[in-house]
Design a protein around this nucleic acid. Structure first.
Length: 568
DNA sequence: GCCGTTTTCGGCCCGACTGTTTTCAGTCG
């Protein structure tokens, strides 16, 4: 028996109870119990007090005892026998919750999506008390588009949706300003929908303009304070727009940025001080509503520093606010050490990339094009690299406000050799090594390749260490704890690749690396000027792992970068 | 089902929208 099994059992029990239309406080009691175990850092064998944890009571405790003694839970078995499996997908149908599903099942024996579709088509549903013609129509429509709605969308896909919506919102003159909220604002790797807070005095006009201009698959709700739709883009994706007045903006964006757990903690904190948080402001005991100009002021009202959105996770961040000031911030970033130019597969010249970095106010940067093995990316031969070095050195003479370093993103070949020899590498200021091929090798072979690179004295950093593409491919499955150990041993940097396609290393691994005392570089891996903006994504993501300024080498001033890395 | 310094009952975060009602339940985030 392990903790995960207990957690999953609680979640299943909650799901079945929900389908039975049980009291939702009872349902959430099981979910809360699962959450309590999830948040506890100890393993099952280290927990001698599991039955006395806050959130574990008589009912949930009995389930744990069952699982520990018999390996299975009587309650779960009972529920499984009672609830038809076909009901579970019904919870995914918008408009259907536990109560209605229980009613449908009791009254007309609905036990699956298909039987519901048939009952709707036959007009049986609209005859039930509490259901009407409209509900029946909506259910049929929702069942039809059920398959087209994906569960989660990776952040790089969300970014395109957000950019599209921002363009549309900018066209509406009745909108004073707006901001994306929700899990996208928290830099979550995947989101299920997109949320916008819109400040306007004319919500109904804005609503109508959006309904006209957006490509829609369905309108879920359209009122004066919110519009909720399913967009007809490459994928069917839900979007929520909240209309608020100027003075409500700070509270609204906090509320709709979440996370849910973060908000619950904030509301508990408010309650303990005799106040009440809503999306429109904070209500005092005397009933007066306080509003705020900024989220900073909102937090300050509760004696908290601003908690960056990407830190708003399971609620425990509220206990760690004294650490926030020491975390890496976009303002601390002094350079980007991984980018491509037209010399390999980038879209802009060295000069264009450098000028874009000057606009960002960086004091230094490294040009790191691909190497010869990567033919598809027009990788550089030793000769072309030497030509590039000459161009960079001469370009560097022209600028006195930024230092351009010569680097490379060198392939680690499938046979664990490196794409350039040591003599050439020694001519460079900064050497990145990375894997772009033979992902399906055994972990042993992958680790042999990584070791060959990381132990080479000329290599400074391993880029995108796992090779994952969020939501698309797993990567090459390296033994990351081992890699971190080597990075420590050889004094090498590991990358947090800030491309929204990658975000690699990922949060747990970054936490582990920082704990081991390994330095991290946040790099955009930009192949175009526009992609330099991903530094912000990377920094936000780094905060999720509570990376401190001193852990991140991009925060080091130029002289320290030269001393510790270039001339090392 | 869980909890408790207003403690063994009554509240649990709170408010918007919809579709069904004729004052509100259910769902959602």
């Amino acid at each position: 028996m392990n903790k995960k099994t207990i957690i999953r059992t609680f979640e299943k029990i909650a799901l079945y109870m929900e389908l039975l239309g049980e009291n939702h406080f009872k349902v959430s009691a099981f979910r809360k119990a699962a959450n309590v175990l999830e948040l506890d850092p100890r393993s099952l064998s280290e927990m001698d007090d599991i039955l006395t944890l806050k959130g574990i009571g008589k009912g949930t405790g009995a389930v744990i005892t069952d699982l520990l003694e018999k390996g299975e839970s009587d309650l779960q078995k009972e529920l499984e026998e009672e609830v038809p499996k076909g009901l579970i997908p019904l919870l995914k149908v918008p408009g259907l919750g536990g109560k209605r599903i229980a009613k449908l099942r009791e009254a007309i024996g609905i036990d699956s999506v298909e039987s519901l579709r048939a009952a709707c088509a036959a007009g049986e549903v609209s005859k039930l008390p509490g259901f009407g013609k409209k509900t029946e129509e909506n259910l049929l429509n929702e069942i039809d588009i059920l398959g087209t709605r994906q569960g989660k969308f990776p952040i790089w896909q969300m970014e395109k949706v957000v950019t599209f919506l921002e363009t549309e919102l900018q066209k509406i003159t009745e909108i004073k300003h707006f901001s994306v909220a929700g899990s996208y604002r928290r830099t979550k790797e995947e989101s299920s929908d997109v949320d916008f807070i819109i400040v306007t005095d004319e919500p109904s006009i804005v609503r109508e303009k959006l309904l006209q201009s957006l490509p829609l698959l369905a309108t879920i709700a359209a009122g004066d304070s919110k519009l909720s739709v399913t967009l007809d883009l490459e994928e069917a994706i839900d979007a929520d727009f909240r209309f608020v007045k100027d003075e409500q903006f700070a509270s609204a964006i906090h509320h709709f940025t979440g996370s849910k757990d973060h908000n619950v903690r904030m509301r508990q904190l408010a309650k303990s001080k005799g106040m009440k948080i809503s999306e429109y402001g904070v209500e005092s005991e005397d009933g007066s509503i306080i509003t705020f100009e900024t989220e900073e002021q909102f937090y300050a009202h509760f004696d908290l520093p601003f908690i960056p959105p990407s830190l708003r996770m399971d609620g425990r961040e509220i206990d760690r606010t004294d650490e926030i000031a020491g975390l890496v911030d976009l303002e601390d970033i002094k350079g980007d050490f991984h980018m491509h130019t037209t010399w390999s597969d980038g879209a802009y010249s060295i000069r264009e990339m450098v000028d874009a970095c000057r606009v960002k106010g960086y004091s230094h940067l490294v040009i790191t094009d691909h190497t010869q093995y990567l033919k598809v990316a027009n990788g550089l031969t030793p000769e072309r690299l030497r030509d590039q070095i000459a161009e960079i050195r001469s370009l560097n003479e022209e600028y006195d406000d930024i230092e351009i370093f010569c680097g490379t993103e060198m392939d680690i070949l499938p046979d664990a050799t490196l794409d350039f020899d040591d003599d050439l590498l020694k001519e460079l200021d900064f050497v990145i090594a990375s894997i772009h091929s033979s992902f399906s090798q055994s972990q042993e072979q992958i680790m042999e390749r990584l070791h060959s690179a990381i132990s080479n004295p000329n290599v400074d950093m391993i880029a995108h260490p796992t090779g994952r593409i969020i939501g698309q491919r797993e990567g090459y499955n390296p033994d990351v704890p081992q890699l971190i150990e080597w990075a420590k041993e050889y004094g090498k940097i590991l990358e947090l690749n800030a491309s929204p396609y990658r975000l690699d290393l990922m949060t747990e691994q970054l936490i582990m690396a920082q704990e081991a005392g390994v330095h991290i570089a946040i790099n955009t891996d930009a192949h175009a000027i526009d992609q330099l903006k991903y530094m912000k994504t990377g920094v936000n993501y780094a905060k999720k792992a509570w990376l401190k300024k001193e852990t991140v080498v991009n925060t080091w001033p130029l002289d320290k970068f030269i001393r510790e890395i270039v001339r090392k």
